[in-house]
Amino acid sequence: MSTLLIVHHTPSPHCQEMFEAVLSGATDPEIEGVEIVRRAALVVTPTDMLSADGYILGTPANLGYMSGALKHAFDTCYYQILDSTRGRPYGLYLHGNQGTEGAEKAIDAITTGLGWTRAAETVVVSGAPDSDAREACWELGATVAAGLMS
Rank of each mutant, 00 (worst) to 15 (best):
I36N: 04
A145M: 10
E20P: 02
I31T: 00
E30V: 11
Q80K: 15
A146L: 09
V124Y: 04
S150E: 12
V7P: 02
A142E: 10
I6C: 00
V37D: 03
V44G: 06
L50A: 11
G33T: 00
P29F: 03
A142G: 07
A41Y: 06
T117V: 15
G99F: 12
Y90T: 02
Y65T: 13
A136L: 09
D83A: 15
T85A: 12
L4C: 03
C77S: 13
V125N: 07
A103L: 03
T143V: 04
F19T: 03
S2Y: 01
G64S: 08
K105M: 15
Y93H: 08
T47G: 13
G54M: 04
W116L: 12
I6T: 07
E101Q: 13
S131F: 12
N97T: 11
D130H: 08
N62K: 06
I81E: 05
T112M: 14
L23V: 15
E139R: 15
G115A: 04
A146C: 12
E20W: 07
L23A: 12
T76R: 11
E139S: 14
A52Y: 03
G33P: 00
G99T: 10
P60L: 00
T112N: 13
R118P: 05
G64P: 01
G141Q: 04
P11L: 12
R134F: 09
L4M: 05
C77G: 07
L42R: 12
T122N: 06
R118W: 08
V37R: 12
T10P: 03
D53K: 07
F74K: 03
F74R: 05
A73E: 09
L148T: 07
C137R: 01
L63Q: 11
Q80S: 14
A142V: 02
L92P: 02
T47P: 02
S126K: 13
Q80R: 14
C15N: 10
D130Q: 10
I6A: 04
L5P: 00
P13Q: 10
L148S: 07
R39L: 09
E30S: 14
L114A: 01
L92S: 05
I36Q: 07
H9P: 04
G127P: 04
A103D: 00
T111F: 04
Y65G: 05
E139T: 15
F74N: 00
A119M: 06
G25A: 09
Y65F: 15
G64C: 04
D28C: 11
V43N: 13
S131R: 14
L140A: 05
G147L: 07
L23K: 15
G25D: 07
A146Y: 08
H72V: 14
G115D: 05
S12Q: 09
T100W: 10
M149I: 02
E20G: 08
L94K: 03
A103Y: 02
G96S: 08
G141T: 06
M1K: 09
A120W: 03
G96F: 02
T27W: 05
H14M: 09
Y79L: 15
S24T: 15
R38G: 06
A120C: 08
E139I: 14
K71I: 08
R86Q: 12
T112A: 14
T100P: 01
G87A: 10
A26S: 03
G54I: 00
V44A: 11
T59V: 00
D132N: 11
A41V: 05
P89Q: 10
Y65L: 14
D75P: 03
L23H: 13
E121I: 08
A142F: 11
F19V: 05
T100C: 13
